[in-house]
Design a protein around this nucleic acid. Structure first.
Lengths: 251, 251
DNA sequence: CTCAGAAGCTAATCCATGTTAGACATTATC
DNA sequence: GATAATGTCTAACATGGATTAGCTTCTGAG
């Protein structure tokens, strides 16, 4: 994907979080960008290292994770094209988690210093980026609930619903049909389950007629029922933040 | 607690996240504050409602939680004096979770509009508040790991360690001894366990000689071992963000 | 075409934690 | 100073999901 297209996509995304003026837009377009392609499993940031670049995800998927003392991985979020990958780390001294490519990714790297300057000189852009991180945090919170208080069927149903909506928002899915970018083992690491059990549950969801799968392609047959079983409510995704309402409330 | 003392405490906290100048400080001191006392279990924000006030916690404890479809509660974070309670909601249209008083609390309410204006007119203050929300998010991420991939002993040990350090940072604990502000049922809601099992684990930690309890007062006898069992690493708390280093890297 | 390595899938067994139900202690209330 | 409400603690039993140990299918490399 051409890098200018990527930046326009990000601009559109930021503008849903709050109004920007021409100067703001020019500043975003003027960011020094360094295009790069990452192979699957390449690290963008490692826990314990100081963040130097903030990446904008142009194509492909990436994820955040930590590894516990006895080697178990927990995935904390999955990111889709159009999202910033490192706002969570860029304003802190040391990264507290890993960010890794899930699939092959095209990214545009921005030096952290440039990003900090952008936020300082253009408060509206800063605010929009801030809101992006708040939405990330809202998703983290929902995942705490998912992993803490739902049983395995609900957890996986919830994840499938979340992916459907976020992929649709990114223009990568329609009619609740999409290509799941993760292996069953990675789904297990998202949901705090074992791969064996993820397999059982996916089979069960198929048997119940709620989803249709072949390989990684998922088609949600009964959205309403899956949503209900997954205790899924879109509110936490904050898909409709911004726009006129937000503009008004900002004054 | 006098409200001016509260605001000075918050200012000090913000200044650890990045340098402020006199104008910034004056703007923070000039915020319209509305003191209020909340009884235990009083709601500050309810899921689904638009946030109107952002509260600064002066004394007491508060927590964020959600309730699942079948009535199970999951606590997502606990807040200590000196912290903002609502930055997570104030810049979004609708609250996606509840914020509730854990103990009796004294708070100072700030209208959301005033806070937004402060962030816009004083980018350094905005940045410090942003970083506060990023640290919240770092704690959310660690809780996903805690609840997703650690067994019950580790989970509770981890929680006890986190509380020790955060309470010490707030000046409410010394030498790893403190008053736990939660019932065992609430600890269960933090860790995704049942109250019965929390009780078992606390007993076990006592039997192992790692902690000493009487009622709610906790004294961590073997910090190193508890930290190890809880797979606890302070990094995610970002206690040392800011200071000279941060100042330098911001230029 | 063949082989190696991923990923998907399955069955048998086990155990960490949940469930249920209640005793006991403390504090607050009338 | 009885009563209720809340929190702590315990035991007996149940179970959801983990563990272990494969087999199968697919894909890509050579």
């Amino acid at each position: 994907m051409p890098i200018t297209e990527g930046i326009e996509r990000v601009l559109r995304r930021l503008e849903t979080r709050g109004p920007l003026d021409d100067g703001d837009r020019a500043a975003v377009r003027g960011l020094p960008l360094q295009p790069k392609t990452l192979e699957p499993a390449a690290y963008l940031v490692r826990e314990g290292e100081p963040p130097e670049m903030c990446a904008l995800l142009l194509t492909g998927f990436a994820y955040r994770h930590k590894v516990t003392g006895d080697g178990e991985r927990q995935i904390m979020s999955v990111h889709m094209p159009g999202e910033f990958l490192d706002l969570q780390n860029s304003f802190l001294e040391v990264a507290d988690h890993n960010v890794q490519a899930l699939t092959r990714c095209e990214i545009a790297g921005v030096p952290v210093a440039a990003l900090r300057k952008l936020a300082e000189d253009h408060p509206r852009v800063g605010r929009a980026m801030w809101i992006e991180t708040l939405v990330d945090a809202a998703i983290f919170r929902e995942w705490i609930v998912n992993v803490g208080r739902r049983d395995s069927i609900s957890r996986i149903s919830h994840l499938l619903c979340e992916f459907a909506l976020r992929l649709e928002a990114a223009g990568l899915a329609q009619d609740h049909c999409y290509e799941m970018p993760m292996t069953q083992e990675q789904i297990a690491d998202c949901t705090g389950l074992t791969p064996v059990h993820v397999n059982r549950v996916l089979k069960e969801l198929g048997r119940m007629g709620l989803i249709d799968r072949q390989k990684r392609s998922v088609s949600i047959v009964h959205w309403d029922r899956l949503q209900q079983i997954g205790d899924f409510n879109t509110r936490y995704l904050h898909l409709e933040v911004g726009g006129p309402t937000n503009l008004a409330s900002a004054r």
